[in-house]
Amino acid sequence: MRHEIQLVGQGGQGIRLAGAILARAFGIYDKKNIVETHLYGAAARGGLSESELVISDEEIYYVKVQNPDVLIVLSQRAYDDFSEPVKNSGVILADDFYVKNFKGDDKRLTLYPLTRIALDTTGSLIAVNVVSLGLISALYSVINVESMRKAIRDLIREKHLSKNLEAFEEGYKLGDNR
């Protein structure tokens, strides 16, 4: 099965790192085929930051995301520009602090207090990326939460690790409770 996950936000929200954590969880620990691509040179593009993953048990031939199964949007612009191609059966997870305007009643869309949780648990906005990862780990059964924890340990610096793991678990709870 081919799965497509896309994360979009702005610079400073750790989007690329979140993509790398997902890629590592799937690619190294779950031994799946993955391809991670991203908008290149984001700094020059009004701060838009994006990471996209294609995950499969088979060879991945088309490396770009076409119709995401999961889209995480952490800014209004991210929602505006990236939500359309998401599958009808797919989900759009939006941060309720940054995303305020929606098109009609989008059945795919759910709002979560991702930024707020990041602030509450770590005191820093940037942890919104791991909160989001926690959330989708709970919501999306393709993701192995143990592999995610391992990948976070690999990629987040020692001194920020415990806070980030905490934020991850808070995000996980948010999804688990539903």
């Binding site: 400073g12 750790g14 690329r16 790192l17 790398a20 890629a23 590592r24 190294i28 940037i126 990326n129 690999d154 990629l155 987040i156 610096r157 001194k159 920020h160 980030n164």
Partner: peptide, 12 residues
Amino acid sequence: EGVEDVRRQDET
């Protein structure tokens, strides 16, 4: 072993 290059959290 397999630690790819990404900017660490505090540098992002």
